[in-house]
Design a protein around this nucleic acid. Structure first.
Lengths: 66, 66
DNA sequence: AGGTTATGTAATATATATTTTATATTTTGT
DNA sequence: ACAAAATATAAAATATATATTACATAACCT
């Protein structure tokens, strides 16, 4: 499932996928795939993304209806 | 870092590591290692554990001070 | 104390996340 | 419409999560 909240949070901070990737220390493609919902990042990576975007896990990755 | 909140949530539900492992579909050892803070589960696994224990990601896996 | 159950932990094997490189497509600005 | 920047996506290689098996220790019960 696409992670639109993550994309919105990134845009709110005026970051490109590449900017976020750099902050988090991974590649642009991995960010793209996570936003596209095409896989399953590690907890550590999720937390790094949250910190970079000023959000919590629940705000970016929790789905009530799963 | 040890995940005490996860262990507490499990005990509250009166589950053994093995019970939780079965519900979530992984092995007892993996639960043990996650509680011991010795690695880095996938998001999918974190969510499955949360659902099994009636908690959210923030409640079990978010650390303000990371 | 002794036996049973629960948990900690390690080594190796396997599955899967992530990187790397590359190309295609889309979006944005002029 | 055009060029440039941003994003999507794929294949192969590598790193890492997870399984499996096994054994040690700790907690619980009578």
């Amino acid at each position: 499932m696409k992670n639109i909240r993550m994309k919105v949070a990134r845009i709110e901070r005026d970051m490109k996928q590449e900017d976020l990737a750099q902050v988090v220390g991974i590649t642009r493609q991995t960010i793209g795939l996570i936003e596209a919902g095409k896989y399953n990042p590690s907890l550590k990576l999720c937390i790094a993304i949250c910190k970079a975007l000023g959000k919590t896990l629940d705000e970016l990755f929790w789905e009530e209806t799963l």
